[in-house]
Design a protein around this nucleic acid. Structure first.
Lengths: 222, 222
DNA sequence: GTCTATACGTTGATAGAC
DNA sequence: GTCTATCAACGTATAGAC
């Protein structure tokens, strides 16, 4: 109520500000929808998620959701795009670090942090891949393939310089991906096996350190 | 037609034999349905799978599927039970081997073979866990928890005997699970990143050897 | 931009003849 | 045990008033 009054009074004075306000409302609603979509898609998959569930969780009528996102498929695609961008950001730390020990440590920590902070996003992504990557398949073929090839070259150069053990760089990267993403994707299983409790920040930090050690040991860095 | 005639003629002479024949038909149909269910559930998830798709792939009418499995949920549960039993079988090789190097090598190889032979089953399982283990949750709490606890004790004893490095046994087991299952669950991604081709038997054997090395190195066994 | 009511397609499940 | 026809329930998406 108070907010609305303030908005109206502002709109009378500054037309541009009012326009901004509308955009702010739009952004706010889209963010609420996207946050809800992430929860529902993670829990039920694409087909199992219903626009009604998403709308209810977002606190808006279903028709309103369809006003912002014409179809469920479009909503899903936009969510995957957001997740993809986050994935790529987390991967950037691998670059521009010459020493393998530091580069690997930072990368693994970055991936573990992502699993900690965005488990739902990780699950949506995993679900998409498990079901054959119907939406993100083309991205895998282009962007991810390029990213992998570049990283394989870096690792190969480390091996040639004798900085790490001889190993299969692709298998090595898959190990890093799988071990770190496991903490997000299999979250419920981990929680059940941990006396029904999720890890505290301290426990998770210890797990992270352990995973870093596994990765470094696999490369012969101790 | 011929089959039917033969069955009838047999039934007149050997009642028991006829019963066997019927059971054979039943078993055969159930196997066809279950095989199709695995494909469809793996590709589309529980909600995305339709009984019509499953029946069509199995080569029977939808109503017939419902004759054998009253509901889609029951079909899904029975499939998970089969997968669970396979999972437990693959895990048995961990036991009764005193030397960590051999026990770990055999276990990792067993898991990698399972990912190779039964990628669809692995995906159905992963999908179930990612979505919060609504069906197998109780199993995780009891059987899997017990299995994990026992294995943690074995690994702990290895550490105390100085046979392997000091490490977090649970995190170590999670690493083995995640790395090996990755080759099944993220099969499509791996294929796309491998010039669009799935691994040959020879390539997969090399990847298996690499994964074994990673696991052994993580435990300080080189 | 918001929301109620509803049209339309899909799907799980069954009835009932064979 | 097999199969065609059918239906009730659900879910996506939209029309149209506000």
């Amino acid at each position: 109520m108070k907010m609305k009054e303030r908005k109206d009074s502002v709109s009378k004075t500054y037309v541009n500000k009012n326009k901004d306000q509308k955009e702010i409302v739009r952004d706010s609603n889209q963010k609420k929808i996207m946050a809800a979509a992430e929860v529902i898609f993670a829990r039920f998959g694409f087909k199992g998620a219903t626009t009604e569930k998403i709308a209810k969780l977002a606190g808006i009528p279903k028709a309103n959701l369809h006003y912002y996102y014409k179809t469920k498929a479009i909503l899903y695609q936009e969510l995957l795009e957001i997740i993809l961008n986050e994935w790529m950001e987390a991967a950037e730390v691998f670059d521009n670090i010459e020493e393998p020990q530091l580069a690997l440590t930072k990368y693994v920590r970055s991936k573990m942090q992502y699993s900690r902070n965005r488990p739902l996003a990780s699950k949506v992504w995993a679900n998409e891949i498990i079901h054959g990557a119907p939406v993100v398949g083309s991205f895998l073929e282009t962007t991810l393939k390029q990213w992998l090839n570049d990283r394989v070259e870096i690792i190969q150069s480390w091996i040639e310089q004798g900085k790490i053990h001889s190993l299969d760089p692709t298998a090595f990267i898959y190990m890093i991906w799988s071990v770190t993403q496991h903490y997000a994707d299999f979250e419920q299983q981990i929680e059940i096996l941990n006396h029904g409790e999720s890890y505290s920040d301290e426990e998770y930090e210890l797990k992270t350190q352990q995973v870093v050690k596994f990765v470094l040991a696999s490369a012969g860095l101790n």
